[in-house]
Amino acid sequence: MGDVIDWDLAVRVGSRLAGDGPVVSSTEAQDVVAELREDAARSTGLVRDYTGLLAPDNTAPVLVVDRAGWVQANADGFAVALAPLVDRVTSKRTPGPVATAIGSRVTGLEVGGLLGFLGGKVLGQFDPFHEPHGRLLLVAPNVVHVERELGAVPGDFRLWVCLHEETHRVQFTANPWLRDHLFAQIAALAETMDVASILDDGLKRVTDAIKGTGQTGSLVDLVSSPEQKEILDRVTGVMSLLEGHADVVMDGVGPEVIPSVDAIRRKFDKRRKGVGALDRMLRRLLGLDAKMAQYRDGAMFVRRVVDTAGMERFNAVFAGPENLPSRTEIHDADAWMKRVL
């Protein structure tokens, strides 16, 4: 796979673009790392008690990383997640213009640019593709940057972030089938790819998306045939559920342990909208606007089901792939409850 994507180049470019983050003393850096580790460990019990989901101990590790560490970890994760697509491209590739279009340095630069942009923004992330059970990443410099930007109480904000990310860790480690299900969707998406079509007119469609002159809003839309749309709808339903569930948990647990949680939520939601024309364009191009909708729509779905049926019955959503809400059901929780409960 290395001849298709130069991952080392992607990591170098991504780390350079992401930068180091805010200036902190060595003592402060050590304190931040220690507090994030403690908050992640504390969040495990809080998430368990609130959700009723039981995750085995000592499965997915918690790593507190800098921006370069996050870039490296995601390059590793992309290499695993994109393997089915890369294998398909490689099998269809012939020498000449096609080989040039997907040359390893070109794709390495593209992936590096993506990682660099996100590496300066992501606060935390659960990586489900890391063997054998995934891993939780907390990006210390970004946490410090945002808490300063919001004027948040550092201890409160750090625990609030950990509650959200630990919920994702619990979701996957308490329900190991989720990882296999997501990977199966990626493999299925790769099988539907018309590689020649993507390579022939993909650049023009990307340019149109950047200019806002095309029919699509994000890079995900650029490769969406009807069959791919169906797969992406399934993935959207899953991700909306997981993100919304984590938001509900962090806000449900928050008032009991985080005195300033209301102020944090209000300021953070405003920040999620993005600032500046370049930032808004990149968010649209990368589909991050859709991700913001996933938080909102997923949280509304979870709250509706929990308020109506209770948390214990809501947890039926994690019984297996057949119980996951479709993209349509995310917007119609009553239909999901009628079908599943």
Results as ranks from 00 to 15, higher is better:
residue 235 V to A: 00
residue 173 T to N: 00
residue 173 T to P: 05
residue 206 V to W: 07
residue 170 V to Q: 01
residue 174 A to I: 02
residue 243 E to I: 05
residue 170 V to K: 05
residue 202 G to P: 00
residue 242 L to F: 06
residue 202 G to I: 02
residue 231 I to D: 03
residue 182 L to R: 06
residue 228 Q to P: 06
residue 186 I to C: 10
residue 242 L to I: 04
residue 243 E to G: 02
residue 198 I to F: 03
residue 242 L to A: 10
residue 242 L to G: 03
residue 199 L to R: 00
residue 179 R to H: 12
residue 230 E to S: 14
residue 175 N to A: 06
residue 201 D to Q: 15
residue 201 D to G: 12
residue 230 E to T: 11
residue 187 A to D: 12
residue 202 G to A: 09
residue 188 A to I: 02
residue 201 D to V: 09
residue 189 L to M: 08
residue 171 Q to N: 05
residue 242 L to V: 06
residue 181 H to W: 12
residue 226 P to Y: 07
residue 202 G to E: 06
residue 227 E to T: 09
residue 220 V to D: 07
residue 179 R to Y: 15
residue 215 Q to G: 14
residue 169 R to I: 03
residue 185 Q to F: 15
residue 187 A to L: 14
residue 195 V to P: 09
residue 169 R to H: 07
residue 245 H to D: 12
residue 182 L to H: 00
residue 212 G to Q: 14
residue 247 D to T: 15
residue 223 V to S: 00
residue 237 G to T: 00
residue 219 L to W: 01
residue 211 K to D: 10
residue 226 P to N: 07
residue 202 G to R: 02
residue 170 V to Y: 04
residue 222 L to Y: 03
residue 247 D to N: 11
residue 173 T to S: 01
residue 239 M to S: 05
residue 230 E to N: 11
residue 225 S to Q: 09
residue 226 P to V: 11
residue 215 Q to N: 13
residue 207 T to S: 15
residue 246 A to S: 12
residue 221 D to A: 06
residue 227 E to I: 09
residue 245 H to A: 10
residue 228 Q to M: 12
residue 237 G to D: 00
residue 225 S to A: 08
residue 192 T to A: 12
residue 193 M to F: 11
residue 222 L to C: 07
residue 208 D to F: 13
residue 233 D to L: 13
residue 226 P to Q: 14
residue 191 E to F: 15
residue 200 D to S: 12
residue 236 T to S: 11
residue 176 P to I: 12
residue 210 I to V: 12
residue 174 A to D: 02
residue 217 G to C: 04
residue 221 D to Y: 03
residue 200 D to F: 08
residue 197 S to I: 01
residue 197 S to T: 11
residue 186 I to Y: 01
residue 193 M to H: 02
residue 169 R to W: 11
residue 196 A to M: 15
residue 202 G to F: 04
residue 232 L to M: 09
residue 189 L to I: 06
residue 216 T to N: 15
residue 230 E to L: 13
residue 190 A to V: 02
residue 239 M to P: 01
residue 191 E to I: 12
residue 231 I to C: 07
residue 202 G to T: 08
residue 242 L to P: 02
residue 229 K to L: 12
residue 200 D to A: 12
residue 237 G to Q: 01
residue 208 D to G: 08
residue 179 R to G: 08
residue 200 D to Q: 14
residue 211 K to Q: 10
residue 223 V to N: 07
residue 223 V to P: 00
residue 237 G to F: 03
residue 220 V to W: 01
residue 216 T to A: 14
residue 224 S to P: 05
residue 216 T to D: 09
residue 169 R to F: 07
residue 212 G to T: 08
residue 234 R to F: 13
residue 198 I to E: 11
residue 224 S to Q: 10
residue 219 L to F: 08
residue 203 L to D: 07
residue 175 N to I: 07
residue 208 D to L: 13
residue 231 I to T: 06
residue 178 L to W: 00
residue 204 K to T: 10
residue 241 L to F: 01
residue 207 T to Q: 15
residue 208 D to M: 11
residue 219 L to M: 14
residue 244 G to M: 07
residue 194 D to V: 13
residue 188 A to H: 08
residue 183 F to M: 14
residue 214 G to I: 04
residue 178 L to S: 01
residue 234 R to S: 13
residue 246 A to H: 04
residue 191 E to A: 13
residue 229 K to C: 09
residue 243 E to C: 00
residue 216 T to C: 11
residue 196 A to I: 15
residue 170 V to H: 04
residue 186 I to N: 08
residue 247 D to H: 06
residue 197 S to E: 10
residue 200 D to N: 13
residue 239 M to N: 01
residue 173 T to D: 03
residue 237 G to S: 04
residue 220 V to K: 09
